[in-house]
Design a protein around this nucleic acid. Structure first.
Length: 651
DNA sequence: GCTATCTGTCATTGT
DNA sequence: GGACAATGACAGATA
């Protein structure tokens, strides 16, 4: 069903493109929002502790109660969840935003009459490629029109109305702006449109394997030529100042920018590592995306066999780049040359933040005392915070890798989404999880109600002393006391029984995964019992918190209802008093009118009718009848009735 | 020391 | 039958 929706959506996109080319603006954002949001939810899994409350809402609605005691005002919860999703969406790939970007600009043909045909994406690619290869190296470095790069940024870009993407585009288009000032805006729009067209063409190429990418032919030829060189010749090459690589820079740039396999990786696996893209998107663009994707595209372009690996590595956050570098550098010398060349190219692309960050990260890692890493690992291994399981985790690397998947839990609120990340045998360093889960999990858990203090404060004190959070280092005893105080009892129990999972991981992992953990790790019966107890208590803790929140909200709602009913009661009381007054006034008017009418009427003797003896009554048919009023003292009820009958007969 | 409140936990029930 | 959510009740911690 999702695939069908996807194809339908792509068809809609293409149709929208056609309409946009003839000047018709079609806003598909509302539809795509509704489309991708469920996908996002599916990929993320249930992301709130209040996931089940909508059913209660439905049930309570069906019961006919506007506010049921078991049905709190869920807007508050879902507002929090919406906010959380919006926060996530800041770094998530949202196609609708991209669509808005290039659907709103219609490119006049006169802007670039000699270079690009807007209607043909292949030509656009060719033009862009010619720009990149035809210009000088410096120009290429300043504004690389690499489609792969752009595509990567668009696919994994900054999300809604991505300021990050806009900035990147602006930076990349600076060269155009300087050269062609008059049509800079339209030029920018043109470039965006062309990039998106090339994106769609690339996507089409992904779904249609028979379709070839025209620039890729030349690139393949160049690469084949390059690869055909003897390794000894390549060893003599200095990737930094050899002319061969100077020429090769452009090729590499083109390769990076026009690598179709990058789209393969992006499109086919976008759903698989959706969460990872969120994590990567949470970082600045210059720090993560560009070097990350450039590195990936490079590997994917020169080796098909390594493509799968690189595609898997594509799921890693940027921090894993150092690992990727190590892994790749250990392949063959050519790989090393390529890596250096690519990194050199990256530096030339003003994306040298990669090197900076990478070196800083390596420096930080190197500066950390190994003992500290062990402490950090052992501490975080049992902490509710799903932070770093370091690479030096003693004998628990596999467990740590799998547990690192539950770091996604924190990100995803109830977390646990991607099994790709949970596969421990990916050869991935576990410290890839040491950067984002802290903040994300904090935000997520703050958003939830599982608010054990150990969840929030423990890692900042115990797990990351090297980040300067703790300015005055505590003594070991004090530190231990702080840790023990902030650890929950279950955490302490788990630590005591050497259970390599945090309570949050135990609680949040799905039952299948939990059962696998119970069976696959050779836990003793006591450990299994403790694991089950931790899971049960954790879930019950969440349930109790939710229940109390619901109760409070129900009380609040009922108080509001009471106030509303009191106000209604007061209003009705005032209306009653007003009605009584009005009734009295009307009665007086009727009496006055009766007296007036009776004074004008005459009896058989020609005397006016006395109001004391006669009265007027209005019948149902609108007729006014004069009734004789007998004094109650002198007449009985039966006589009155008889008199009335006589009078009626007379009238 | 007493009290109110919060929070975790257990037991139970229903899904 | 097991997992789990919901909830009342109880106990401990804390202001």
């Amino acid at each position: 069903m999702q695939i069908a929706k996807k194809y339908l959506t792509e068809g809609l996109i293409q149709f929208t493109i056609l309409l946009s080319l003839i000047g018709v603006r079609v806003d598909v954002d509302s539809y795509l929002n509704g489309y991708y949001t469920p996908l996002f939810e599916i990929s993320l899994g249930p992301s709130s502790a209040y996931t089940q409350t909508p059913f209660h809402s439905l049930r309570d609605t069906l019961d006919g109660y506007s506010v049921h005691p078991k049905c709190p005002e869920l807007d508050y919860f879902f507002a929090s969840r919406r906010l959380l999703d919006e926060v996530r969406a800041l770094g998530s790939p949202r196609f609708p935003t991209q669509l808005n970007a290039w659907l709103l600009h219609q490119v006049p043909d006169s802007d670039k009459p000699d270079s690009i045909e807007p209607s043909d994406g292949d030509d656009a690619d060719t033009s862009l490629g010619s720009e990149s290869t035809g210009g000088d190296a410096g120009d290429d470095c300043e504004h690389p029109p690499d489609n792969g790069h752009q595509t990567a940024q668009h696919l994994f870009g900054q999300g809604p109305c991505s300021s990050g993407t806009g900035e990147v585009l602006g930076e990349e288009e600076n060269g155009h702006v300087k050269e062609e000032e008059p049509g800079s805006l339209s030029q920018l729009a043109h470039s965006i449109a062309l990039e998106q067209e090339s994106l769609l063409d690339s996507n089409a190429a992904v779904f249609d394997p028979a379709r070839s990418h025209p620039p890729a032919v030349d690139i393949d030829q160049q690469w084949s030529h390059f690869l055909s060189l003897p390794v000894s010749d390549l060893d003599d090459l200095d990737p930094l100042d050899t002319e061969c690589f100077t020429d090769l820079d452009a090729d590499i740039t083109s390769t990076i920018s026009q690598d179709v396999s990058l789209h393969d990786a992006m499109v086919s696996r976008a759903a698989a590592y959706d969460m990872v893209s969120e994590r990567t998107a949470a970082m600045p663009v210059a720090q993560q995306q560009a070097p990350f994707f450039c590195l990936e595209s490079t590997n994917s372009s020169h080796s098909d066999s390594s493509m799968g690996m690189t595609m898997d590595l594509a799921a890693l956050p940027f921090v894993s780049v150092c690992n990727v570098t190590r892994n790749l550098s250990s392949h063959v010398p050519l790989d090393g040359c390529l890596d250096e060349a690519v990194f050199d190219q990256i530096n030339l692309l003003h994306l040298d933040d990669l090197g900076t960050i990478d070196s800083q990260m390596l420096d930080n890692l190197g500066a950390i005392d190994p003992q500290l890493l062990e402490d950090l690992d052992s501490d975080s291994g049992l902490s509710l915070e799903n932070s770093s399981r370091g690479p030096a985790s003693p004998g628990t690397s596999e467990v740590s890798s799998s547990s690192s998947s539950y770091c996604e839990d924190g990100c995803g609120a109830t977390g646990y989404t991607s099994e790709v990340d949970s596969i421990p045998s990916k050869g991935i360093f576990d410290h890839t999880t040491s950067w984002s889960p802290v903040d994300l999990s904090e935000s997520v858990w703050h958003d939830h109600s599982y608010s054990s203090p150990a969840f929030f404060h423990q890692p900042s004190v115990a797990s990351f002393p090297h980040k300067g959070i703790k300015e005055e280092p505590l003594s070991e005893e004090e530190d231990q006391r702080v840790v023990e105080r902030e650890l929950s009892r279950d955490e302490m129990r788990a630590r005591a029984m050497c259970i390599p999972f945090s309570a949050m991981q135990i609680v949040n992992m799905p039952v299948e995964e939990f059962l696998d953990v119970l069976e696959g790790h050779g836990f003793s019966p006591e450990q299994v019992t403790l694991l089950r107890d931790i899971r049960r208590r954790g879930k019950n803790k969440l349930a109790a918190q939710n229940c109390r929140k619901r109760k409070l909200d129900a009380i609040t709602g009922l108080q509001g209802e009471v106030e509303k009913l009191q106000a209604q009661r007061d209003r009705l009381f005032r209306e009653k008093q007003l009605t009584a007054k009005t009734l009295g006034a009307v009665s007086q008017q009727i009496d006055q009118l009766t007296r007036d009418i009776l004074s004008r009427m005459r009896n058989d003797l020609g005397e006016p009718l006395s109001p004391q003896r006669y009265t007027l009554q209005c019948g149902a048919n609108g007729r006014v009848v004069v009734h004789l009023v007998r004094k109650p003292i002198t007449s009985t009820t039966t006589e009155n009735k008889n008199d009335k009958r006589k009078k009626d007969k007379k009238l």
